[in-house]
């Protein structure tokens, strides 16, 4: 099992009272699986993704990674966890606007390894893999939405993560590009064995998963294995 979460709760304090975005949720995510998470707005799917990626501390509960329990309260440890084991693909691509495609990938590599030449070669390999080897010196604004998302995927794969987390990765793309990007994610999952967890609103996109989870009011509503 790659990830096990047990009795996970995330409570937000608001002026009108406390809200459990994730409510006493337990879940196992096997290695090499492609998990899609759906649910209405406010159902807690993005909050769950944030906790899985070590980006947000839960209020209570436990999470283990490769059978090792993570100390979710240590910010420094979680940063190292993110750089070593997790790749992120965002709806808004999350690329640094003043860095070229190659540099956007290199900054992710630099967190782990300071060897610039080695990082450059690896970044070029990744750009080639996503079909953008002729766009290395292009800035995000010079790339199409689909190309930007490919750069984001290449960056997410930079440090060979075991876990790829995608938050609405096709939310800003037209149907054709969406299919293309989902195909890339599926390829990563099947050929590289990378575990993919994808949050989506789209029923069509959810069909790409081998495990389909639906959340309702922060609780697990359905957990369907295909």
């Amino acid at each position: 099992m790659l990830i096990q979460i047990k009795n996970l709760t995330k409570t937000y304090q608001r002026h009108d009272g406390a809200i459990n975005a994730v409510d006493n949720l337990s879940l196992d995510i096997p290695k090499g699986s492609f998990v899609t998470i759906t649910g209405a707005s406010g159902s807690g799917k993005t909050t769950l993704l944030l906790i899985l990626g070590g980006l947000l501390q839960p209020t209570s509960g436990k999470m283990s990674y490769n059978a090792r329990e993570l100390d979710l309260l240590k910010e420094k440890d979680m940063a190292t966890f993110r750089s070593n084991h997790v790749g992120f693909v965002m709806q808004s691509f999350a690329l640094v606007p003043y860095l070229t495609a190659l540099e956007n990938i290199s900054i992710a590599l630099n967190v782990k390894d300071k060897d610039n030449d080695k990082n450059r070669k690896r970044a070029l390999q990744l750009l080639e893999w996503v079909g953008l080897d002729d766009r290395t010196t292009h800035y995000p604004k010079e790339l199409s939405a689909g190309q930007q998302q490919r750069v984001a995927i290449a960056r997410a794969l930079a440090n060979n993560p075991d876990l790829l987390l995608a938050d609405e990765p096709t939310g800003n793309l037209d149907p054709t590009l969406s299919e293309e990007i989902l195909g890339v994610l599926k390829e990563i999952n099947q050929k590289q064995g990378t575990t993919v967890v994808m949050v989506t609103h789209s029923p069509a996109a959810a069909e790409y998963g081998d495990t389909k989870i639906q959340l309702k009011n922060g609780k697990l509503h359905t957990n369907e294995k295909v």
């Binding site: 900054i107 992710a108 967190v111």
Partner: peptide, 9 residues
């Protein structure tokens, strides 16, 4: 973004 991809404080 930097924090997300693993940069420390």
């Amino acid at each position: 973004i930097l924090r997300m991809i693993g940069y420390h404080k």
